[in-house]
Simulated assay, not measured.
Amino acid sequence: MKNIIYIALLALFVYSCGSSGGRNFPSDKIANSKNDTVRIANDSLEYEIIIIEPGFNLFINSYARPRGYYSLPFLENKNQFLVTEYNQRVRQPQIFNPDLYLNEINYDPSIDYGYEVNYLLYNYFVYFSRHYNQRFSVPTRI
């Protein structure tokens, strides 16, 4: 009798450690995980920013400082230095991970991109540095 109880407990333990293959997850969670592309463009389409990064939407909606927290000159100044360093890392695949630094970012400081583009670009660098444990010479703490 004692052995049957131990076998039943062991079987229950093994069963509870099984995978979640047959469970149904809420469809809104699945939809949110697929929608991790952020695109901002002006009306004349002179510029656009497209961020395809899993988890960035959650970061921008939950953890980033709210819009209006930073001034536009602050964001433009930070983005100018961050983009420069990011692009230097893209050009050095032998030193920096080419899987992280895929494409250069075309950011011209003489163009007025507006608050939204600068806000999202700066917060992308904050997310990128935290998520991939990358340090830039310009502090990206929020």
Rank of each mutant, 00 (worst) to 15 (best):
L10C: 10
Y63K: 13
N123C: 00
K29S: 08
E76G: 09
Y122K: 02
N3A: 09
Y124L: 07
Q94W: 08
F25S: 04
N32A: 09
D112F: 10
Y101A: 07
Y63A: 07
N35P: 02
G55V: 05
I95P: 06
K78R: 15
Y124P: 12
L9V: 14
I49S: 06
L72A: 04
S19Q: 08
P93I: 00
Q94F: 07
I142S: 03
V38R: 03
F59A: 07
K78D: 06
Q88F: 09
K34A: 11
N32E: 10
G55F: 03
A31R: 13
P109W: 05
S27D: 07
R130P: 01
L82F: 00
I7V: 14
V38T: 13
N123Q: 01
R67T: 10
C17M: 09
K29P: 00
I51D: 05
N103D: 15
N3P: 02
A64H: 05
Y124G: 11
G55C: 10
G114C: 06
L10S: 10
K2A: 05
F56P: 02
Q92K: 12
R23L: 09
I7S: 02
R135L: 05
Y86F: 15
S62P: 10
H131I: 08
D112L: 04
R130M: 03
N57V: 04
L58Y: 07
S129A: 03
P26S: 05
F74C: 09
N97Q: 06
K29I: 13
L75V: 08
S110H: 14
R39Q: 11
K78G: 02
E116W: 00
N24A: 13
F125P: 05
Q88C: 08
V83F: 03
Y6M: 12
E48C: 08
L58W: 03
I40A: 02
N57H: 13
R91M: 06
D99M: 13
Y115V: 01
V83W: 04
S62I: 06
D43Y: 10
N32G: 07
N24W: 06
E53I: 04
Y69Q: 12
D108F: 03
Q92E: 09
S16I: 00
N77A: 00
Y69V: 01
A31E: 12
N97I: 04
V14F: 09
N87E: 05
D28H: 14
E116C: 00
R67L: 09
N79C: 03
Y113W: 09
M1H: 08
K78V: 04
I60C: 05
S110V: 15
D36C: 03
V90F: 12
Y15R: 10
F56H: 09
I60N: 10
R67D: 09
I52K: 15
E104A: 12
G68C: 00
P139L: 00
N35C: 02
S44Q: 11
D99P: 08
N61W: 07
L82T: 01
L12G: 00
D43N: 11
E46R: 14
E104F: 14
V83N: 14
Y122F: 14
I60T: 09
Y101E: 11
Y119S: 08
I4H: 11
E76N: 11
N106I: 01
P109T: 10
G21H: 14
I95C: 00
V117E: 10
E48H: 07
P139G: 01
N42D: 14
T140F: 08
Q94M: 06
G21A: 12
P66K: 04
N118F: 11
Q88L: 14
S44I: 08
Y101N: 13
I105H: 09
